[in-house]
Amino acid sequence: MFKQVVEALLNGQFICPTAFPDAFEYLSHATNADKINTFLKPLDRELLNLDGELFYAAYTVVDDSNRAAIRDAFSEVRSQLRPVVEWMDMVMTALGQDMPIRARDEIRLHQLLQAIEHEPSLSEQLNRLTQLTLFKTNRPGLNEQLAWVLQKLEQAGYLVRPNPQASVYIATGKINYLHGLIAFLNDAESLDLDQHAAGNNDGEQQELFL
């Protein structure tokens, strides 16, 4: 298990009980976590635990050897931030929830679709979502659009579908990482998502994400 966990962390995976139950259980034992951390330190990484729901490897040093990798990771997260936040807002409204989605929350496609079909503003919001890069599609029907959005979220690591034959999705710990990232950015500065999406001044911001 040590080898599999190290490889997953170095590949940028977010290890949570939903997406990687065996690896998460392994890291939940302090002895194992210490072994992983000892291995990561010479690679300028450290093992972090977020909210008890998520393990991931963060850079401890930024230099020429890893700057490109950090830039790529920053660009990926930045491109996903607005679409995923808007999707969470749509789900909160559709399901009448007071709190945004967190790790281990269930998303039932048919329940969500029924709410969207009965509210024109939600149908319009879903249509707008499918114009954003992460979710972009020309599929016309609400059912097809929603299934596509959930599929893209699964591919991006925010959701898993325990039973491929069912339409129930579970939020992963990466959702909590996104919440933490938003909170950090809100504390660090007044965030304008559109401005950051269009801007080229990424140097300092990249290092804040890792």
Rank of each mutant, 00 (worst) to 15 (best):
M1T: 09
F2M: 10
F2P: 01
K3R: 12
V5T: 14
V6C: 12
V6G: 00
V6F: 03
E7Q: 11
E7S: 11
A8F: 02
A8K: 14
N11T: 03
N11K: 07
G12T: 05
G12S: 09
G12Y: 06
Q13T: 01
I15H: 00
T18Q: 14
A19F: 05
F20G: 03
F20N: 09
A23M: 12
F24T: 01
E25Q: 10
E25W: 01
Y26H: 11
Y26F: 15
L27V: 04
L27W: 06
S28G: 07
H29R: 14
A30R: 12
T31Q: 13
T31H: 08
N32P: 00
N32T: 00
A33L: 06
K35P: 01
N37Q: 08
N37F: 02
N37T: 07
F39H: 15
F39K: 15
L40V: 05
K41D: 02
P42V: 14
P42N: 11
L43P: 01
D44R: 11
D44P: 00
E46R: 15
E46G: 10
N49P: 01
N49Q: 09
G52Q: 13
L54C: 11
F55T: 02
F55E: 04
Y56W: 13
Y59A: 12
V61P: 06
V61H: 13
V62F: 12
S65A: 12
S65T: 13
N66V: 04
A68G: 01
I70H: 09
R71L: 12
D72C: 03
A73Y: 11
S75C: 02
S75G: 05
L81C: 09
L81S: 09
P83G: 06
V84E: 04
V85T: 15
W87Q: 00
D89T: 07
D89K: 13
D89Y: 02
V91P: 01
V91M: 04
M92L: 09
A94H: 04
L95V: 00
M99A: 10
M99Y: 10
M99G: 00
P100F: 04
P100D: 05
P100S: 06
R102P: 01
R102E: 08
R102M: 08
A103G: 10
R104F: 08
D105H: 15
D105P: 02
I107W: 03
I107M: 11
R108Q: 12
R108W: 09
R108Y: 09
H110L: 12
H110F: 13
L112A: 05
Q114G: 05
A115F: 05
H118M: 12
H118A: 08
E119F: 00
T133E: 15
T133A: 15
T137K: 07
T137A: 08
R139P: 02
E144T: 12
L146T: 04
V149A: 12
Q151V: 01
K152P: 01
Q155K: 14
V160C: 08
V160A: 03
R161D: 08
R161V: 00
P162W: 03
P164L: 05
Y169K: 08
T172P: 14
T172F: 12
K174I: 07
A183R: 15
N186K: 13
D187F: 04
E189C: 13
E189S: 11
S190Q: 15
D192E: 12
H196D: 11
H196R: 14
A198V: 11
G199V: 00
N201C: 00
Q205K: 15
Q205Y: 13
Q205R: 15
Q206W: 02
F209D: 06
F209P: 06
L210A: 06
